[in-house]
Computed example of a mutant assay.
Amino acid sequence: MTSVKKQTQVRLEEDVLGAGRAAARARGLDFNKYVERLIVEDTTGARAAGMTAAQRLIDEHGGFLDDLEEQLDAPYADPQSGAAA
Rank of each mutant, 00 (worst) to 15 (best):
M1Q: 07
M1F: 09
T2S: 11
K5A: 12
R11P: 01
R11K: 14
L12E: 05
E14W: 01
V16Q: 14
V16Y: 08
L17H: 13
A19H: 04
R21P: 00
A22G: 07
A23C: 10
A23S: 10
A23T: 03
A24K: 00
R27C: 03
G28D: 03
G28N: 06
D30V: 15
N32H: 11
K33P: 00
Y34H: 14
Y34M: 02
R37D: 01
R37Q: 13
L38S: 01
L38R: 01
E41A: 08
A46G: 05
R47S: 04
A48T: 13
G50K: 09
M51W: 09
T52Y: 02
A53D: 11
A53C: 08
A53K: 13
A53P: 00
A54Q: 11
R56P: 00
R56H: 06
L57D: 09
G63N: 09
F64P: 00
L65K: 08
D66Y: 06
D67Q: 15
E69C: 11
L72N: 05
D73T: 13
D73V: 12
P75L: 03
P75S: 03
P75D: 04
Y76S: 04
A77G: 04
P79S: 04
S81M: 14
G82H: 02
G82R: 07
A83H: 03
A83K: 11
A83G: 01
